[in-house]
């Protein structure tokens, strides 16, 4: 059943049978613009912050009401944002290419110019994701520029950032990097931080002490090509987690592209092998679902599981880059030229 109405948005609604649970799904576009929206950060039940491929940073409510933060965009960059994070009072956005600039915005003063709090001039700099564990501790990660992943951390709420020395990080494997698909290469629970990689190797890096020390574990995930690997990761708690991805250039390929852990990432088990979904750019847990319900999105559609990733149902064929689930029935979706809401 498809509804079309209102001048600026489309409502798509239908029913799907999933693991004997009937899900009503409604997708409503709340923003149309000529930009890519991969970096979304839920601020509360009704608002999501975004940073887009045109250098715009803002917030949008379920109603579509939008406000933009003030930013002075430098001319030496395309200002393509793919990473975003927030604390109670501040919002942070980080662009992908070199020079990489990490901006800090005051949420209460969106007319105040965003301040660059970290600059990386390394020509190889390519940051993929950013995350705040609490109001003080934050982390951003990027592709290797040396023989380790690029990791920067803050312990003062994002005022200052420090690059982690390669001697304190596991060595990167040849051809191992990360994908800036949806700002979800980093996940956290309590003092644990996990980082997912892809390319020639798909591994999961883990720190149990807020990023002070790291180890890395291998996964049975698809790997071996520049475009294969883990594109997104989510943890429900310090034990239950999921990694998803595949091959960006082969969207229907679904071999070894979804895996779960029940021991905090020590081991990973492939699930739903050789069945849909194929390529996934973002996966998130539904809150209060006991780690059983997840929604994954990719450019080919939206997928729901009610049993921890073992079986998935395609709930829409509309493609998106990223999802932020704000409660048991609502999510924001970011795509090419659009931000939408999902009711499920």
């Amino acid at each position: 059943m498809i509804y079309r109405g209102f001048s600026f948005f489309m409502v798509l609604s239908f029913y799907s049978l999933s693991a004997q649970i009937i899900d009503k799904v409604e997708i409503k576009t709340i923003l149309n613009a000529n930009a890519g929206y991969r970096a979304l950060e839920a601020l509360n039940d009704s608002t999501v912050a975004f940073a887009n491929s045109n250098g715009e940073v803002g917030e949008i409510a379920l109603s579509g009401k939008t406000r933009y933060y003030k930013i002075d965009l430098p001319k030496d960059s395309s200002n393509h944002f793919r990473a975003i994070a927030s604390t109670s009072n501040y919002l942070f956005a980080l662009n992908i290419e070199s020079p990489a600039r990490l901006y800090k915005f005051d949420k209460q003063r969106y007319n105040q110019l965003g301040k660059v709090v970290f600059l990386d001039n390394n020509p190889k700099a390519f940051y993929d994701a950013m995350y705040f564990l609490d109001d003080k501790n934050g982390i951003a990660m990027g592709d290797p520029t040396d023989d380790c992943l690029t990791i920067i951390t803050t312990i003062d709420g994002g005022t200052t950032w420090q690059k982690t020395d390669c001697k304190n990080l596991p060595k990167i494997e040849p051809g191992e990097a990360a994908f800036a698909a949806s700002n979800t290469n980093i996940a956290s629970s309590k003092k644990n931080i996990w980082i997912a990689t892809g390319g020639l190797k798909s591994r999961v890096f883990h720190s149990a002490n807020l990023g002070k020390t790291w180890n890395v574990c291998v996964t049975p995930f698809i790997q071996g090509k520049p475009t294969t690997g883990i594109y997104s990761m989510a943890f429900y708690n310090s034990k239950i987690g999921i990694i998803c991805g595949g091959d960006y250039t082969d969207k229907s390929a679904n071999l070894n592209n979804k895996a779960i852990t029940n021991n905090g990432g020590k081991t990973w088990k492939i699930v739903a092998n050789n069945v849909l979904p194929g390529y996934i750019s973002c996966v998130q847990f539904v809150p209060n679902s006991n780690g059983k319900s997840l929604i994954a999105v990719g450019t080919e559609g939206i997928y729901l599981t009610r049993n921890g990733g073992n079986n998935w149902t395609e709930i829409s064929t509309e493609g998106f880059y990223s999802i932020q689930i704000v409660n048991e029935h609502t999510a924001f979706l970011g795509g090419q030229g659009t931000i939408a809401t999902l009711k499920f």
């Binding site: 992908i96 290419e97 040849p174 051809g175 990097a177 390319g199 020639l200 520049p226 250039t249 450019t299």
Partner: peptide, 30 residues
């Protein structure tokens, strides 16, 4: 400058993969 490049090597072969990953797949190339 804004393209993403990945370098691979094994004992004998060197591989250089590059693409403009700021664009959608249907607008880019590897």
């Amino acid at each position: 400058i804004n393209w993403k490049t990945e370098l691979y090597m094994d004992q004998s072969t060197s591989i250089f993969a590059t693409a403009d990953t700021t664009k959608q797949l249907s607008e880019t190339f590897l």
